[in-house]
Design a protein around this nucleic acid. Structure first.
Lengths: 132, 132, 132, 132
DNA sequence: GTGGTCTAGACCACA
DNA sequence: GTGGTCTAGACCACG
């Protein structure tokens, strides 16, 4: 696993964990059905309390990213995520609004902004041959 | 002022306040040099604690959006904002990363995402000369 | 508050807490908008850890029973609950199935069962004049 | 046997097993005296641990649903179940209470609830002589 | 060995 | 003073 946590950041550890795992899924480093480390294992790995990992896992489960399986432990949701529904798009919009407003205040043009987004999208493109 | 606060949201009130003011600046409803309500006045208006408004104003000042004069009160920064520097772009990127990763997991394409951004940009376009 | 917890029961404390509060709402002992005790207050009251109360409150929030309000603390959801949707009815059915199957094995007739349900429904009828 | 286990559900597997067998008895797909698969056989069939099947069988025995003979293996209790006694009715009531309270909060009327129960009862009615 | 629950006690952000 | 986060350590249910 490639999980890196910044214990000093002002973003909660469990939130960072969630983001790292979501990023892993987005760039297909974590594939549907793949097993994630156990709560205790991951907690020990990154040096945090097991409750912190537990909270991240549970929220990921509630949001549909993973399954907590009785036998196989914690796995990436085998069916992939549900597609974006209206509720999600609304939430997305809500979260982009303040970011875009601040960018406008700093004279970031719509084109610059979109180009930035495009370049970030590229980051997650798994381009099957870029490892090795 | 058109400030609407959602006391039930899980975003801190001072943060919502900041976002509302930044949004006002972005859509040029608040122009450089324009006077903002006093801490006390605004706090009374929207029914929140003095400290909360104070915190929002001070952070806005620290980020260059407003000036706090002992006598003239609080005004939108008369020179406009500094343009986006590298540090800002970096921060922007950081904040977009998790949003985009989650969107990819839900099959939102780069094009859809950019179109959403464009439509939000439109929201802030004041071309209608609707104030004054 | 009329919350009674059985620390010996094999049903988790946080679950009992949830049920007690839901029962309170059902019998209108807790009205929309009404304030619930603080996490720490309630925990001290019933002699459990604050995390246990916290978990109950959060799940109740996620299920729409309560709001965790920045200023007013924890309150019963002021708009009342959403009505039962299809998903809820499905879940209801799922939970009744094993109960009814076991009852059939013990020769409890459909009529007896329904009468039992009716009598439980009565229990929650707030019959506005039965207190005082 | 028609036993279906959902390994991703949050109900323990042994509990699901019990429910499936009880449901089978209720709809008379399993008749008094009928032989059930051996612990090993069933465990292999549905791909779970021996202990899990064992636990389910032993609890079913303790509750009077089945008999476990050292030689003849596991059979549905040949005399049928004991009828519901007061203790059972009390337990039944206990288990219905939280379900009904939650339903009231969602505006499910007593009539709707009873109708749902009736329709579930129908599900278990074997009147179609479909076995044998 | 896995996750689920609970406790005790701490620090911080928010209002 | 409120809830939010985190830690450390414990016991239990499950498989």
């Amino acid at each position: 696993m490639f999980i890196k946590i910044d214990l000093e950041a002002d973003i909660p550890i469990y939130e960072q964990l969630k983001q790292e795992i979501i990023a892993g899924i987005a760039k297909q480093a974590l594939l549907p059905g793949e097993k994630l480390p156990s709560v205790r294992g991951l907690a020990a790995d990154i040096g945090v309390n097991l409750h912190t990992v537990n909270k991240a896992y549970h929220q990921l489960r509630d949001e549909g990213y993973i399954l907590i399986h009785r036998q196989r432990g914690v796995v990436i949701h085998p069916d992939g995520m549900a597609q974006a529904d209206e509720a999600y798009m609304e939430k997305l919009k809500e979260s982009l609004h303040p970011i875009i407003a601040a960018s406008i205040c700093r004279d970031v043009s719509s084109e610059e902004f979109q180009q930035l987004c495009a370049s970030i999208y590229e980051t997650y493109n798994p381009r099957k041959d870029d490892e090795q």
